[in-house]
């Protein structure tokens, strides 16, 4: 082993983490509050739907996924005071009224023959938008100052990817006819338009903007 007294760089050569990040403490807290709100709405409806779906495999998966999103909401709940929000309920809010409209429409189906609609809303619309917003946050926040948020984002994203795959495979296994393809697509389009109006789970800017400033203002 080399001389233990010999000076070493504080950051190892392979550690490329940087200080700058796109979010202030306040902006990170605002987003985390939005995340907690949407995770709560998601675990509540998944729990509620369990009794309404006749398909046994779907029933059991919804019960499992219900806990995943409850746990995510708990992670965000615990993160808020660390971001100087001592009353976590104050920032546990929807990004805007349009997102409330999206959630209302997503949670509306109840009848036992609407499993496709229930799953499409969650696994083809909401969860892909959550993955997008969480990934944007992960890739844009300071890898040093906001490391606790990054750690929670990574835990949540791992669940989101696995749950998305579970849900998508359930949808594919339920769709048997052209008419059911159309049903799924129509419901997805309806909800996607509501999500578009909301601008994503954290409102406009959930995944930043892909356009240059000049084009964005054109």
């Amino acid at each position: 082993m080399a001389d233990p007294k010999k000076a070493r760089a504080p950051f190892a050569p392979w550690d490329r983490r940087e200080l700058p990040g796109a979010f202030t403490v306040e902006e990170s807290a605002r987003r985390v509050g939005n995340y907690k709100w949407i995770e709560m709405k998601l675990f509540e409806v998944l729990g509620g739907w369990v009794a309404t779906v006749p398909e046994l495999d779907v029933k059991m998966r919804l019960g499992t996924h219900c806990y995943h999103h409850a746990w995510h909401s708990e992670l965000w709940h615990k993160r808020l005071p660390e971001l100087r929000e001592m009353n976590p309920d104050r920032l546990t809010l929807p990004a805007n009224d349009e997102l409330v409209a999206f959630v209302d429409a997503m949670t509306e189906p109840e009848a036992p023959d609407l499993t496709i609609e229930k799953l499409v809303g969650v696994y083809r619309v909401l969860i892909p938008h959550k993955i997008a917003a969480y990934t944007f946050h992960l890739n844009n926040t300071s890898t040093i100052t906001d490391a606790p948020t990054i750690r929670s984002l990574k835990f949540a994203l791992q669940d989101e990817f696995e749950d998305w795959r579970d849900g998508e495979m359930l949808i594919q296994s339920l769709i048997d006819t052209d008419a059911e393809v159309d049903r799924a697509a129509a419901h997805q389009a309806k909800l996607e338009k509501l999500m578009l109006a909301a601008g994503g789970i954290a409102g406009p800017g959930s995944i930043g903007s892909a356009y240059t400033e000049q084009e964005a203002h054109a």
């Binding site: 059991m60 219900c66 806990y67 409850a70």
Partner: peptide, 12 residues
């Protein structure tokens, strides 16, 4: 509610 969600997973 978090406990009930955990219970959902356990019961599943």
């Amino acid at each position: 509610k978090l406990d009930m969600a955990r219970q959902c997973w356990d019961e599943a």
